[in-house]
Simulated scan of single mutants.
Amino acid sequence: MGSSGTDRVALVTGGSGGIGRAVAERLAADGTAVAVHYAGNRERAQAAVAAVTGAGGRAITVAGDVADENAMAAVFDEAEAAFGGIDVVVNTAGTMVLGPIADFDLDALDRMHRTNVRGAFVVSQQAARRVRAGGAIINVSTSVSRLQFPGYGPYVASKRAVEGITLILARELRGRDITVNTVAPGPTATPLFLDGKSQEQVDALAAAPPLERLGRPEDIAESVAFLAGPARWVNGQTLYTNGGLA
């Protein structure tokens, strides 16, 4: 239950995806045992676990719908049974549907918000009940909440909700020695981000930050690892990890 990486345990939701997998591998490199959560893509989650164990780390896969409180209670149970407890919860699971507010499909809105808002709430709720003293809860938002790109309204609405949940939960956990923060990535070179974009669009976004490149999943994972371990005095914050874009 101490603070050293070797006895810490993390649950990473969406751990089979680009940022989630990078987070799982980065935390494992610090000596943290990792439960790699997935919803649908078992093979990718197993590949993430294989990458961790191949590098000498400890990892298992766990599966469930983040918006289903019973499924996620079972996921937390599995992680605790495998590793003895949970110190870090990183909630990277999310979906993104883009389109203008004026004609956005409300069923698509409901589906996205079920994963992004209810899912983040369910995971945060379980984390609030279970994370051990000295632990950290880390949600994932987006730098587009500052950038305000047209077409991102429904998605930003879901992620602003996540930031609000994070900021209040940090205060509600007073006295527990648990930090609660949000990482808000900028454009990051993941399949989710690159899908459907032209090379010109990708190049323009890469040129926009002062550092003149897209983020890498490893860049986001570095911020998560900071919040998950040494950053004990950072609490109730949104950390914009975007190369200076916003």
Rank of each mutant, 00 (worst) to 15 (best):
I178D: 00
N181G: 01
P210L: 11
P209E: 06
D203W: 05
P185M: 07
A207L: 15
N181S: 08
R174I: 05
N181Y: 06
L192R: 15
D195E: 15
R213C: 12
P191Q: 14
G215E: 14
D177T: 05
R216D: 13
V180I: 04
R176L: 05
G215P: 12
A204M: 07
P217K: 09
D177P: 00
A221W: 00
A208V: 09
E163Y: 06
R171G: 03
D203E: 12
V202G: 08
V183W: 02
E212F: 04
T179I: 04
I165H: 02
T190R: 12
G196I: 06
G196W: 10
E218T: 03
F226Q: 01
L173P: 02
R213Q: 14
E200V: 10
L169P: 05
R174N: 04
I165Y: 06
I220M: 01
S198P: 03
P187T: 08
R160D: 08
V183H: 02
D195V: 09
D177C: 01
L205I: 05
G175M: 06
P217S: 07
P210D: 12
L169N: 07
L173A: 03
A221I: 02
T190N: 11
N181K: 05
P185S: 05
R216N: 10
T190Y: 10
L205G: 01
G186T: 14
S158D: 04
E200S: 12
D177G: 02
L169W: 03
G196P: 12
Q201W: 04
A221P: 02
S158C: 05
V202Q: 10
P191Y: 12
L173W: 09
E200K: 11
L205W: 11
Q199I: 04
A208L: 14
N181W: 06
L205M: 15
A170C: 11
E163D: 15
R171C: 03
K159T: 09
E212Q: 14
E222S: 10
L167P: 01
G164W: 01
K197R: 15
T179E: 00
D177N: 12
S158T: 13
L167C: 04
G175F: 07
G186R: 12
T190F: 08
A189K: 11
I165Q: 09
P210C: 10
A157K: 07
P185C: 07
S158V: 05
G175I: 04
A206P: 08
K197M: 15
L173K: 08
E163S: 15
L194H: 11
A170E: 07
K159D: 03
L194Q: 10
T190A: 08
T188R: 11
T166V: 05
V180E: 01
A157F: 04
E212L: 05
S198Y: 02
R213M: 12
G215M: 11
F193L: 10
F193A: 10
A189Y: 13
